[in-house]
Amino acid sequence: MRRNKYGIILPFLAPAIILYSLFVIYPYSQAMYVAFTKWKGLRKSPRFVGLDNFEKMLGDDKFWNALSNNLIYLFVLPIVTLGFALFMAFMISQKVRFNNFYRVTYFFPQVMSVVAIGILWSFVYHPTIGIFSSLLKAVGIKNPPVWLGDPDTALWSIVAVTVWQSAGFFMVIFMAGMLSIPKSLYEAAALDGAGRGSTFFRITFPLLWENTRSSLVFITVIAMDMFGITFTMTQGGPDRSTDVLATLLYEHAFLHSRFGYATSIAMVYFIIVIVLTLLIFRVTRRETVEF
């Protein structure tokens, strides 16, 4: 059966290996070098400068500002989005009426293009054509904030959009876990007189470890990225109040042709994602419960 197996192995693997090596492995390995160079645009070539880029980063206010915005997202988004998603998943899996309608509706923003979402919400927040500010005026608030135009509110406006977009996705992930919990456990709890609250905290949540862990990793990746939504809604402004590492490095690379410095910021970005992912896996490592 496997007599001339290499006659199939090589041609079947070749296209994948060639494309992947050229467009994925090669750029990533080159990035490991570019991060330690000064490279000012396509016409020049990279010059090795050791740790200069990273030293410069330490004293760069824009870098610390962008990083601290990522940290705010990293702190707020998991709590708000996952908390809300978990709450809704639990509600819907209780077989409330119209549960299917809710599941389908809540998930929809997940399939929309991030650019379309960004534009739609810049309209919603818009001080004159937007519905949000005129709603607030209608209920008596005279000077509603200029949501995306004010450094104090812009970041939180983006947080709200991100929750709007991703809560349904995480809800569906939690629901998948909830459906696999055997009914008998709930029946036993009901016999013991457990209410909704204690059923959730004693039974449902502890059995959702796997789903919680993957959700944490996803939301970490989302909070570190934030590029599409930020770039369409505020471009990092006003006054850099919504700048994140991804928008900052894009600006350095493609507006100012600082290829080396941009890549060294990307390197820091990458290291943070990896460290946090490993940390999540470490902290949440538990014996998985077998049913």
Binding site: Y20, Y26, P27, Q30, D225, Y250, T263, A266, F270
Partner: peptide
């Protein structure tokens, strides 16, 4: 080979952006 392909999922695209741009150029 399997792990080589798998490792591609670890990296954020932003890290490859500049070298990819230069390569495609």
């Amino acid at each position: 080979l399997f792990y080589m392909f798998l490792s591609g999922m670890l990296f954020p695209v932003f890290l490859a952006l500049v070298p990819l741009f230069s390569l495609v150029n």
